[in-house]
Simulated assay, not measured.
Amino acid sequence: MKEESPVPSPVVLGIDDLRPLPWTTRIARSSGEGVELLQEHRDSLIDELWLDHDLGGDDSIMPVVTLLEEAAFNGRPFRIGTVYVHSANPIGAETVVRSLTRWNYQVRRATL
């Protein structure tokens, strides 16, 4: 009898300094941790990526956005099903949405 291969669990990553995001499989609390987290998943499918713009103090999500943009510019975008932007900063959130949409990532604004 043939064994069925297990269905892989969805990979749901979050980058947010405060929110618990309990549905995520991994969470980063700063842009530096977020860059590392994405690099760990560089060659695999990320089903969902949840991004907050303001990450405490002077930190923001922009280094992560830059990493995603540069990957797309170099012809090797990250494989992400949907990027959700859930920031309370409307201008910052719109910047992220526009930047990533420009590089053909599927991006949605989300409210929590």
Results as ranks from 00 to 15, higher is better:
37 L>T: 11
84 Y>T: 14
61 I>T: 00
53 H>E: 09
52 D>G: 04
77 P>L: 12
74 N>W: 09
48 E>L: 03
98 R>V: 10
88 A>S: 15
34 G>Q: 12
37 L>D: 12
64 V>P: 00
24 T>N: 01
80 I>A: 09
72 A>G: 03
49 L>M: 00
33 E>V: 11
79 R>T: 13
101 T>I: 08
31 S>T: 12
25 T>V: 00
106 Q>E: 07
84 Y>D: 15
41 H>S: 08
104 N>S: 01
83 V>H: 11
81 G>A: 12
106 Q>P: 04
101 T>V: 08
62 M>W: 03
28 A>M: 08
86 H>S: 13
102 R>P: 01
36 E>N: 12
93 A>N: 13
83 V>D: 11
66 T>L: 01
56 G>E: 06
74 N>C: 08
77 P>I: 08
53 H>P: 03
60 S>W: 06
47 D>E: 08
52 D>R: 04
79 R>V: 13
73 F>S: 02
62 M>H: 06
70 E>H: 02
64 V>W: 03
67 L>R: 01
93 A>E: 10
42 R>I: 06
74 N>R: 09
27 I>N: 02
55 L>G: 07
26 R>L: 08
61 I>L: 04
104 N>L: 08
90 P>T: 12
68 L>A: 04
76 R>N: 12
91 I>V: 15
50 W>P: 05
65 V>K: 04
88 A>Y: 14
27 I>G: 03
26 R>P: 05
48 E>D: 06
88 A>V: 13
49 L>K: 05
75 G>T: 06
100 L>F: 07
40 E>W: 07
47 D>Q: 02
89 N>Y: 14
94 E>H: 10
100 L>Q: 05
77 P>G: 10
59 D>T: 01
35 V>G: 14
76 R>K: 14
93 A>K: 13
77 P>N: 10
93 A>I: 15
28 A>E: 02
45 L>A: 03
101 T>G: 12
35 V>R: 14
68 L>K: 00
40 E>M: 11
96 V>C: 15
49 L>Y: 02
41 H>L: 10
45 L>N: 02
35 V>H: 14
58 D>H: 10
51 L>R: 07
50 W>T: 10
82 T>S: 15
106 Q>G: 00
82 T>K: 11
42 R>P: 06
66 T>K: 07
78 F>P: 12
74 N>A: 11
57 G>T: 00
29 R>N: 04
75 G>W: 06
29 R>M: 01
69 E>L: 06
41 H>G: 08
39 Q>Y: 13
